Amino acid sequence: MRPFAYERPTDAATAVALASVPASAHVTAPVQYKGGGTTLIDLMKLDVMQPTTVVDITAIDDEAMHRIVPSDEGLRIGSLVTMAKLHADPSVVRDYPLLTESLWQAASQQLRNMARLGGNVLQRTRCLYFRDTSYDQCNKRVPGSGCAALDGSNRGHAVLGTSDQCIALYPGDWAPALVALDARVEVLGRTGKRLIAFADLHRLPGTTPHIETSLSPGELITAFIVPGGPRRRSLYRKIRDRESYAFANASAAVAIELDGRTLRDVRIGLGGVATIPWRAHRAEGMLRGQELTEANARAAAEAEFGDARTREHNGYKVVLGKATMVRALLDAQAMEVPR
């Protein structure tokens, strides 16, 4: 690990001032925030990330950033809340099972105790070519260098949202749940606070895969806002190589409202198959207002994966992704929902 300066501000404005230096918003930015550090420190040890300054935000004395606040309008979650704290919150367990299930199936208990939710949604790709600096070709790590995964080992790479410059997978479990629930993100920058749709937080790789989010340099996530709407009949299904501590080969975050067997509303987020947390708008459009049958669910899944682009080793993700979506929809239909 390279030498770096360490700052531990006690208020958010000071943290933002320390981090708001002229820089491009990618891996080479000289200042990085650290929450739990479960991703950042790992990548610093691998020499993938080389910040000259680390700003530890865990000492920020802003109660709102550490609290979970439910209301009739929805849910406000501070960005410094740990994964473990949200997963154990009784009101979230009852009213937002999708959020708690996706956290329970992520990482290990030790990591969930450390990791903060703001950092969780910004975790970096698990692509081996990104994380191993002995490979020269990685447009995400070294812009313009190429993508070794295109013709390399790509079993774990994305099939949706890819480009000729990058096929790296977004690895998180909680983000597909947030995108399915139409969450918003509160961020603080030098000019003040702003709200953005969670669906707009992550950027498709396109020709600039090194720019992963819509955040400006120095902007700090302070909270997540989850509105009301379909939430109690919601769940998360994750398929992985082993049951414990493994990233998704395919996952589906589903929230539905039923009128008998007809879908009054349906929200679907996909993980394990795309370069960003993926909102399945095409499938939702086909299902909304229709009877939820296995045949209709399969047709919607076929349509959602119609534009999938596979490489030599990851074609199975299309079959698995469709089956996971169908299973999640039918399991949500069969849920017993508390009144």
Score class of each variant (00 low, 15 high):
Leu178Ala: 10
Leu178Arg: 11
Leu178Pro: 02
Leu178Met: 13
Val179Ile: 15
Val179Ser: 06
Ala180Ser: 10
Ala180Lys: 03
Ala180Asn: 09
Leu181Cys: 08
Leu181Tyr: 01
Leu181Asp: 02
Asp182Gly: 10
Ala183Leu: 07
Ala183Val: 10
Ala183Asn: 08
Arg184Ser: 15
Arg184Glu: 15
Arg184Asp: 15
Arg184Pro: 01
Val185Arg: 02
Val185Cys: 02
Glu186Thr: 15
Glu186Asp: 13
Glu186Phe: 01
Val187Pro: 00
Val187Arg: 12
Val187Cys: 03
Gly189Lys: 12
Gly189Ala: 13
Gly189Met: 12
Gly189Asn: 13
Gly189Gln: 07
Gly189Phe: 09
Gly192Leu: 10
Gly192Glu: 05
Lys193Arg: 14
Lys193His: 13
Lys193Met: 13
Lys193Ser: 15
Lys193Asp: 07
Arg194Asp: 13
Arg194Tyr: 04
Arg194Ala: 14
Leu195Asn: 09
Leu195Lys: 00
Leu195Gly: 03
Ala197Ile: 12
Phe198Trp: 05
Phe198Glu: 09
Ala199Lys: 14
Ala199Pro: 00
Ala199Tyr: 00
Ala199Phe: 00
Asp200Gln: 15
Asp200Met: 12
Asp200Glu: 14
Asp200Trp: 11
Asp200His: 08
Leu201Asp: 00
Leu201Ala: 04
Leu201Asn: 02
His202Cys: 07
His202Leu: 12
His202Lys: 12
Arg203Pro: 00
Arg203Thr: 09
Leu204Cys: 01
Leu204Thr: 04
Pro205Trp: 06
Pro205Val: 06
Gly206Ala: 12
Gly206Lys: 14
Gly206Val: 03
Gly206Cys: 07
Thr208His: 13
Thr208Ser: 13
Thr208Cys: 08
Thr208Asp: 15
Thr208Pro: 00
Pro209Arg: 10
Pro209Asn: 05
His210Met: 11
His210Cys: 10
His210Leu: 04
Ile211His: 00
Thr213Lys: 04
Thr213Ile: 06
Ser214Asp: 14
Ser214Gly: 05
Ser214Pro: 04
Leu215Glu: 06
Leu215Arg: 05
Leu215Tyr: 07
Leu215Trp: 05
Ser216Asn: 08
Ser216Glu: 15
Pro217Trp: 10
Pro217Phe: 07
Pro217Gln: 04
Gly218Ser: 11
Gly218Asp: 04
Glu219Asn: 06
Glu219Cys: 11
Glu219Ala: 10
Leu220Asn: 06
Leu220Arg: 05
Ile221Thr: 05
Ile221Asp: 04
Thr222Trp: 01
Thr222Lys: 02
Ala223Val: 01
Ala223Cys: 02
Ala223Arg: 02
Phe224Trp: 08
Ile225Ala: 01
Ile225Thr: 03
Val226Asn: 04
Pro227Tyr: 07
Pro227Gln: 11
Pro227Cys: 10
Gly228Ser: 11
Gly229Leu: 03
Pro230Thr: 03
Pro230Gln: 04
Pro230Ala: 11
Pro230Cys: 08
Pro230Lys: 07
Pro230Ile: 02
